[in-house]
Structure formats: structure tokens, C-alpha cells
Amino acid sequence: MTKVSMTVNGKTVSGEVEGRTLLVNFLRDDLHLTGTHVGCDTSQCGACVVHVNGEAVKACTMFAAEADGAEVATIEGMANSDGSLNTIQQAFQDYHGLQCGFCTPGMVMSAAALLKENPKPSEAEVRDYLEGNICRCTGYHNIVRAIMAASGQDVPAVAAE
């Protein structure tokens, strides 16, 4: 076992991990931050996306020990300080960007990473950026609309395809 410490959502945390402990397991099992989901465990679905030093990563495909000393942000840290939903989360609610909600934490974290890098993305850029986030309910249209709304742009009337 190795001792790791990192900053998660602004708080310093530490714990003992095995070499093989994935970041997502450390977050969920040790820190009890269960908002980060494990969908596929094969780095395809994106339900486990978190930010490590500001970059979106799949927490199921990174070891906890590799995040030693890093700044980690998870879905639990996304709400405003008064507990209300932040802009992206609120837009997901307003535009019904979810059905079962399983993929939503990863979608919100990917959306936040996109808008940090590209504050006014086109619809095509939003769809392209979500390549690594899979939703099996919504068909993506409302997710894309929510992210466009969160970026302060006009929301395209998306025709069902």
C-alpha cells in the first residue's frame, strides 16, 4: 500500500492505495464520492470523467497513485457554493438533458472541460467533444442543447433524426 494525497474539490484528502487502485475506486470507495460513475470500466463510456489538474480524464483509466499531488474535480464540486445547480447543471435540467441520469456526471464534467477550452462552441464542436461520453437514453439532442444553452448561445431547434 502507498499513501497518496491530493486535493479533491478544494479539500486535501489522503488515503492508502494499492498500485492497481484506480482513481475512480479511490474516489468512490475511499472518499465516498459516488457521483463519479463506472459505466463500462473500459474507458469508452465517459461516465467516470473527472478533471485532473484541469484536464478531463477517465477516472477508470488512471491509477489513484498517479493523481498523487494533483487537483481533482468531480461532479460533487460542481454546484455553486450556496448548493444551487451551476450553469451547466441547471441547463441540463432546463433542457431535459438526461433521462436515467447515469451518464450525466460524466457529461457535465466533459461539458465543463469543453466550455473552459472553447467558451462558445458550435453545435458540431459540442457533438465532437462528446465523442467519449455515451448516453443510452436521450439520443444526445437535449444534451447538446443544454450545453449550447450553458454557453450562453442560442439553442438550436434540433430536429429528431
Partner: peptide
């Protein structure tokens, strides 16, 4: 290559 989260790592 891959997707944005893969490209971060």
C-alpha cells in the same frame, strides 16, 4: 486520436 479524455492522458 480517441476522445478528449483519452487525449489528456
Amino acid at each position: 486520436i480517441g476522445d478528449p479524455a483519452v487525449r489528456s492522458r
